[in-house]
Every structure is written in structure tokens, then in C-alpha cells.
């Protein structure tokens, strides 16, 4: 019933709008004897108010949403990205405000007047060169900073990094830790069966102490090296709080390393949220359960990490024994 009423109201609204417009059209036809009399001051004012209104809206929302954005980056790599982001925000923000103001100020200031003539100004090479060169220089500097960090982020992991393997499948992550020997047991596609989905080669001695964890637990301030892969379709390994992301592709191994710098406990204080948790989510459409493919991430102190390690049982024992 309410749906029908809603539709009726909507239809009436449209009819009212159309009728008003028809009336204004009629007035225009009556006046059209002298086309030059047309003025555009109302419409110029309309566009100007909309334009400046929107400019204010966009700036106010920036302030409003600031506290809702991601908390400060929880990894060394994240800090680099965050700094670059700040530079980019300032740069593009300035251009945004200036160009929007000019656009709508021109609309208002140079609105049509019978008394005035537009200024015939077809080209000016100096201006064109100026706004070719200035953006080029600014962008070159920006690219310089960015690429330097890019290569640092994708440099080889330090030798002492903790090695973890993350494998995506619909709709879960399997996390395999390399255990005491810091070496992941080899995998072989031909060994895959329903009891050994990853195709781990149990003859490889390195596989014997590997264990599967149901949370991504990381010690603070230690480098972590993550081998990323997928079984069925492409997934994406996304750690928003660490500002790190990498695709998980079946058949193409990928890799990421980083150094977490803030423990979960510290971050809970930082964000004033006692329930705060880091999360690992999937960020590449992988099917109908894509929106719920997550794992909890816990950054702990060195001691807590060691204690946690002691509780983990090798996968070999549970899967084969």
C-alpha cells in the first residue's frame, strides 16, 4: 500500500514539475519576439551557488571524515606510503580548490551581458608552455619520491625475516608458518589431493615443523616475509592497517615483506577502542563470499609471540602422523 502511495506521490511530483516548466516555456514563447532580451543572470547565479556550495561541502566533509579514516600506519612501509599520501593530498588539494574557485568565479563574473563583448583571445604560447612545464616538474619530483619508496617496499626481505605462507581459496586464508627451521616445506602440484590441498611434500624435512595458524600472529618490530598464493581464483592479500596489499594468483607466486611497528594492545589505546583488531581481508572479487574472507591479525610482543609459538602443533602431526 505504502509503495503504491509512494508511486502516486512521485507521479504527481513529476506532473507538477512538468506543468511549471510548460508555463515557463509559454512565457518564453510570448517573449520570444526579441530573443536578444534573454538574460542569463538567474541561471548564472544558480550555477555559481551550486558550485561554491559543492566546494564547501567537499572541504567540510574532509574535516568531518578525517577521524574516521585508518589510524596511523602500523608498519614501517605504511609510514612511507602515508607520508607520500600527505604530500599528494596537499598538492592536489591546492590545485582542486584554486581551479574550482576560478571555474565558478568566471561563471559568475563573465555571465552574459548585452553591453559587453567577449575578449577575442585565441591562444598564447607563453601560457601554454607555463602550464605544460609546471605540472611536468611537480609530477617529476613526485614520481622521484614515489619510485624510490616503491623499490624499497619491494626490495628482498631481510635474511632474519619470519617466513609465512598465505594461501587464498574461496573464502578463507590458509596461513602456514615455517616453524623452527624458518623454512617452508616444498609444495608440489602433483601431490594435491583432498587430504593435502596445498600439495605439501611430506618427504621434505623442512615440512615437518611447519604449522597452520588460525590467526596471523606477528611479533612487533620483526621483519615478516609473506609468500602469497591462491588455489582456485585470484584473491588479494589486504592488510589495511599496515597499508599493504598484494594479489594472490593461482600459478603465480607473489611476495611481500614488512615490519609491524605497533602491537594490537598499543593500537587499542591509540584508537580508544578496546575491541580494535587488525584484519586481513580479501580485496579482489573472488565469488559470492568475497565480502567475508577475513582473518584476524594480532601483533604481539616478542615474549607473547614465543609463548604462542610453543602452543602450535606441527601440521604434519595433525594431517599425516
Amino acid at each position: 500500500m505504502s509503495f503504491v502511495l509512494g508511486l502516486l506521490t512521485l507521479a504527481l511530483l513529476f506532473i507538477v514539475i512538468v506543468q511549471i516548466s510548460k508555463a515557463s516555456e509559454l512565457i518564453k514563447t510570448l517573449r520570444s519576439g526579441n530573443e536578444q532580451e534573454e538574460t542569463f543572470s538567474n541561471s548564472a547565479l544558480f550555477v555559481t551557488i551550486l558550485g561554491f556550495g559543492i566546494l564547501i561541502y567537499t572541504l567540510v566533509t574532509c574535516v568531518y571524515y578525517k577521524p574516521h579514516l585508518l589510524p596511523k600506519p602500523a608498519s614501517e612501509q605504511g609510514v612511507w606510503i602515508d607520508n607520500l599520501l600527505t604530500i599528494t593530498i596537499i598538492l592536489t588539494g591546492v590545485v582542486y580548490v584554486i581551479t574550482q574557485i576560478l571555474l565558478f568565479a568566471f561563471v559568475y563574473k563573465y555571465q552574459y551581458s548585452k553591453k559587453r563583448k567577449a575578449y577575442f583571445f585565441p591562444d598564447n604560447n607563453k601560457l601554454e608552455i607555463a602550464w605544460t612545464i609546471v605540472p611536468s616538474i611537480v609530477l617529476t619530483i613526485l614520481i622521484g619520491f614515489a619510485i624510490q619508496k616503491w623499490f624499497k617496499i619491494f626490495s628482498p626481505a631481510p635474511k632474519d625475516a619470519i617466513v609465512i605462507e598465505a594461501t587464498g581459496k574461496q573464502y578463507a586464508w590458509t596461513l602456514r608458518y615455517s616453524g623452527r627451521d624458518q623454512k617452508l616445506g616444498k609444495r608440489d602440484f602433483s601431490l594435491v589431493n583432498s587430504d593435502n590441498e596445498l600439495g605439501i611434500n611430506w618427504n621434505d624435512p623442512a615440512s615437518k615443523d611447519d604449522f597452520i595458524a588460525d590467526e596471523l600472529v606477528l611479533p612487533v618490530n620483526k621483519a615478516v616475509s609473506i609468500n602469497i598464493g591462491a588455489l582456485d581464483v585470484i584473491h588479494n592479500f589486504w592488510l589495511p592497517h599496515f597499508r599493504l596489499m598484494m594479489s594472490a594468483v593461482p600459478g603465480v607466486p607473489t611476495h611481500l615483506w614488512f615490519r609491524p611497528t605497533i602491537t594490537t594492545e598499543e593500537m587499542r589505546k591509540e584508537t580508544n577502542n578496546p575491541n580494535f583488531d587488525y584484519v586481513l581481508a580479501c580485496n579482489k572479487l573472488c565469488g559470492s563470499g568475497h565480502y567475508n574472507m577475513q582473518k584476524k591479525v594480532r601483533v604481539v610482543t616478542e615474549e607473547e609471540y614465543k609463548a604462542w609459538l610453543r602452543d602450535q602443533k606441527p601440521y604434519y602431526l595433525t594431517a599425516v602422523h
Partner: peptide, 19 residues
């Protein structure tokens, strides 16, 4: 960027009919 600046300059000192 060149295109945007050129559009802005086109409006500058124009006699704009807001149709």
C-alpha cells in the same frame, strides 16, 4: 591539465550564456 587550464581560460573574459 592543459585541457582544463584551456577551458578555464576560454571562460575568462567570455560573455557566457548559461544555457
Amino acid at each position: 591539465a592543459i585541457k582544463v587550464f584551456n577551458w578555464l581560460t576560454t571562460l575568462w573574459k567570455g560573455n557566457i550564456r548559461i544555457t
